[in-house]
Computed example of a mutant assay.
Amino acid sequence: MLVRTAVCAALAVALSASAVIAQSKAIAERKDIMKGVGAAAKTGAAMARGSAPYDNAKAVEVFTIYANAAEKMPGLFPDDSKTGGETTASPKIWEDMAGFKAAFAKFAESSKAAQSSVKDLDSFKVAFGEAGKQCGSCHEVYRIKK
């Protein structure tokens, strides 16, 4: 009986640890993707401001990073990742998952369109500004401000 109790306790600890690891993995993936988006935004902002020369290949890469992030992110918010890992994800994500996913779908669509429509600095500034508005509106609703 004592052995069975010990085995059950060990199994419970292992399952609990697995859940924490899965939770941490989703949060870590979200953070990594957002770091990439932040780096792309920094590159884009430098070109838009003129502090870095405009480079069409880099401009397209900014929107490629955005589109890839927008496609991956909605799947990285399982119910068990609402807390922990210093997440700034707002509970509103899980309360309005359809709206959250729709915001990312819109961001993916506009980012993909920008990949082929951006041809020069002027067109980049327009597309980059729109992307910034989409990022900001999503963060306003679905991110906890620190």
Rank of each mutant, 00 (worst) to 15 (best):
L2A: 13
L2M: 14
L2Y: 12
L2F: 13
V3Q: 15
V3F: 15
R4E: 14
R4F: 14
A6E: 01
V7Y: 08
A10P: 06
A10W: 01
L11R: 11
A12E: 11
A12I: 04
V13I: 15
A14Q: 14
A14M: 14
A14G: 14
L15K: 08
A17L: 14
A17H: 08
S18N: 12
A19S: 12
A19E: 12
A19I: 10
I21A: 11
Q23W: 08
A26S: 13
I27Q: 04
A28W: 09
E29Q: 15
E29P: 03
E29L: 13
R30T: 02
I33L: 01
M34W: 07
K35W: 06
K35A: 15
V37M: 06
V37L: 06
G38F: 04
A39E: 13
A41P: 00
T43A: 08
G44P: 06
M47H: 03
M47N: 05
R49Y: 05
R49N: 13
G50H: 07
A52Q: 13
P53T: 12
Y54I: 10
D55H: 09
A57H: 07
K58A: 13
A59T: 15
A59N: 05
A59S: 10
F63L: 09
F63P: 11
I65W: 12
I65K: 14
I65Q: 12
I65M: 10
I65G: 05
A69K: 01
A70N: 10
E71H: 14
M73G: 06
M73P: 03
G75V: 08
G75L: 05
L76N: 02
D79W: 07
D79S: 09
D79A: 12
S81D: 07
K82T: 01
T83W: 07
G84H: 10
T87F: 02
T87R: 02
T88D: 13
P91H: 04
K92W: 04
K92N: 10
I93S: 05
I93F: 10
E95M: 05
K101C: 02
A102W: 00
A103I: 00
F104P: 00
F104N: 00
K106L: 10
F107D: 09
A108K: 13
S110C: 04
S111L: 06
S111P: 07
S111N: 05
K112G: 09
A114C: 11
Q115H: 08
S116L: 11
V118Q: 11
K119L: 07
D120W: 03
L121T: 07
S123Q: 09
F124R: 02
K125M: 06
G129Q: 03
G129F: 08
G129E: 05
G129T: 02
A131K: 01
A131P: 04
A131R: 00
Q134L: 14
Q134T: 12
Q134C: 04
C135W: 01
C135P: 02
G136E: 04
G136K: 03
C138G: 07
C138Q: 07
V141P: 02
Y142D: 01
Y142P: 00
K145V: 09
K145A: 05
K145D: 08
K146D: 14
